[in-house]
Each structure stands twice: as C-alpha cells, then as structure tokens.
C-alpha cells in the first residue's frame, strides 16, 4: 500500500545531523560499554602492526549516531519499530569527526531513509537504510 501523501509530506526530507569527535577517551568508554576490547581498538602498539596501521574505532560507535539522527528528526517514531541495515565501508580513526545523516528515498514504500555516517573529509564510513517496521502504532512520522 502506498503511504498517504500527508504522511510522507510530514517526514523531513533529510535527517538532522549527529556528530562525534572520536578520541581515545570515547573509544575506551565505548569498549567498556560493549565489553569489546579488541586490541585494534584499544592497543596502539598492536594496532600499528595491523594493515590498518593504527587504532580504529568500533564500527558500532559510529552507527549509534544514526539512531541519534533518527531520534532528532522523527522523535519517538525514530526510536521505535525501526529496521536499520548498514555496511561499514571505511575505518574510523583516532582524531576523526564523524557525522550521521540521512535522506528520505523518494519512491520507497513504506517510507525509507538512506542513511550514512561520513568522516570529516566527507567520505562515507557507514552506508545503509532505516525503515519503519510495519505494525505497532502509526507509520513513521515526523515528531
């Protein structure tokens, strides 16, 4: 079923950005939250010996910004009954600033956002889609 025009019209065409400066304190905090102490994230000596050549952040750390962008733009509808699918396309390094965003896909039904996280150079580090899961109360709607 096609979404009603009024529903689609209420959706923002772009998600409000959410950004994070990735430093060693942030990475260490996220490692504790997830209990993920993979040395590629937390051990600079080990990380220097890998093909990455240094510390990289947890991919899910940057992914969390997409949830923030959804919540900022869609309110509670951006926090409930959402399917998020992403690919990690580039490593995020110490000192990077990453920013999540998204764009409403024009012809998708039900409504679907193309989502991404970019680094400070504008290179995508995460790409994917976010879509309301049918059922529950109402369709994806602006806050």
């Amino acid at each position: 079923m096609q979404p009603q025009p009024t529903q689609r019209n209420r959706l923002p065409s772009e998600l409000a950005p959410a950004a994070l400066d990735v430093n060693s304190t942030v990475i260490a905090h996220y490692a504790r939250l997830t209990d993920d102490f993979n040395p590629i994230h937390v051990d600079p000596d080990f990380a220097a010996t890998t093909p990455m050549g240094g510390i990289i952040a947890h991919g899910m750390l940057s992914m969390s910004l997409i949830w923030q962008a959804l919540a900022r733009s869609l309110g509670q509808a951006g926090r409930e009954r959402i399917e998020l699918k992403v690919r990690f396309t580039r490593p995020v390094r110490l000192g990077d600033t990453v920013t999540a965003g998204g764009r409403l896909l024009p012809d998708a039904s039900p409504a679907c956002y193309e989502v991404w996280v970019q680094n400070q150079a504008g290179d995508p580090v995460i790409v994917g889609t976010a879509q309301r899961i049918p059922g529950g109360a109402g369709e994806m709607a602006a806050k």
């Binding site: 926090r79 009954r81 959402i82 992403v86 899961i133």
Partner: peptide, 16 residues
C-alpha cells in the same frame, strides 16, 4: 581469531 572484520550490521527494534 585476531583480525576479524565487522562488515555489516542490521537491527530490528521491536519494543524498547
């Protein structure tokens, strides 16, 4: 094994 690469992730959030 060391060196695994997290390539993709999906979540379906049903009820918080």
């Amino acid at each position: 094994p060391p060196g695994n690469v997290h390539a993709a992730q999906e979540y379906r959030l049903l009820r918080r």
